[in-house]
Amino acid sequence: MQMTYLEAIADAMRHEMRRDDNVFMIGEDIGTYGGAFKVTKGFLDEFGAKRIIDAPISEAAIIGSAIGASLNGMRPIVEMQFMDFITNGFNQVVTVAGTTAYRWGLPVPMVVRGPSGGGVGGNPFHSRNSEAWFAHATGLKVVCPAFPDDAKGLMIASIRDNDPVMFFEHKGLYRKIKGEVPEGEHIVPLGQARVVRKGTHCSVIAYGSAVHMALAAAEALASEGIDIEVVDIRTLVPFDQETVFESVRKTGRALVAHEAVLTAGFGGEIAARIADIAFQYLDAPVRRVAAFDSPTPFAPTLEQAVLPNAEKIQAAVRELCNF
C-alpha cells in the first residue's frame, strides 16, 4: 500500500495499539488536535483519552511518567512535539531511562519519538538533529528511518523492544516521501543497515534525510560515470558495522553523510570504525559531509547554506574518486 512517511509511522503505532493494550501514547496536543504534525490524527477517537494522553507542557514529567509506566509493565510511546524539546526532558532520558537496564536489570520499553531535522525554515529551535547526543549517552537505542516502509517496520520493532528507543522522524520527509508499505505486521529489526543503491566506486554511508541527498547525488554522478553505493544505516544504536565494512571493502572509498552538525556527529564514529577495521581496503581517506557547526538558521538562504545537500555530496565523492 502506498503511504507517506508520516502515514507509515501512524500505521505502525495504530497497529501496535490495537495489538497490545499496554501500548499508550503521551505527549502535547496529541489528542483532540492530533499532534502538531497530525501524526496521531484520529487516535483519540479510536483509543480514548486513557491511551492518548494530552499532557501539560512538561517534557520531564511526560518522559518521567512514561519511564514509571514502563517499570509497571506498560509500553509507552512519547511524542515530543519537536525533537528539539527533548532538551527539557534530557535528564529523564539520559539519567533515568538510559541507566535502568544496567543498574536494575529492568526493562524500560519506552519509545520517545518526534519530528527532527531542518530544511523547512524551522529556526534554531525546531530544526535540530540531536541523535548523536543519545548515541553517546549509553543505554539508549537510536533510530533514524529514511523511508516509509522502514519507518513502519522500525517503529513496530521499537515499540516491542525492551530498551528505551529514541526515534527520530525527519519532518522534511513526513509528506514528501511516499512509498510502498506492507500492510499489517511489518518488522524491521533494529541494527540492520540496508544497501539502498548498489554501486562500485564509492560508498556513501548515511541515515535519515541524508540518504535522500545521497540518492539524488548518485543520479547526478551516474551521468559522469561515477557509480556510488548508498548504505542507509537506519539505526545508530545498534550500529550494523558489518554491512558498512562490506560495502567499503568492495568500493574502497567511504563518504559519511548526515544532516546533523559535523563535530562529534555520529559520522565521526562511523569514520573512525572504518579507519580502524577497513583501513587496508581504502583507496582514499574517509570523508564526511555534514552541517556547518552552527545552530540551524531561520532564513532559507542561510539554512540552505549551512545544511548538507546532494551537491555537497557530489563534490565530496568526486574528490574521493580523484584522490
Binding site: 520531564a60 518521567g64 511518567s65 514509571g68 533515568v96
Partner: peptide, 16 residues
C-alpha cells in the same frame, strides 16, 4: 527530583 515523575508514572500505569 528525577524520580518524582517516574513515581507518578508508575501509579499512572495502574490508573490506566
Amino acid at each position: 527530583g528525577a524520580m518524582i515523575p517516574v513515581a507518578a508514572g508508575f501509579s499512572l500505569a495502574d490508573q490506566l
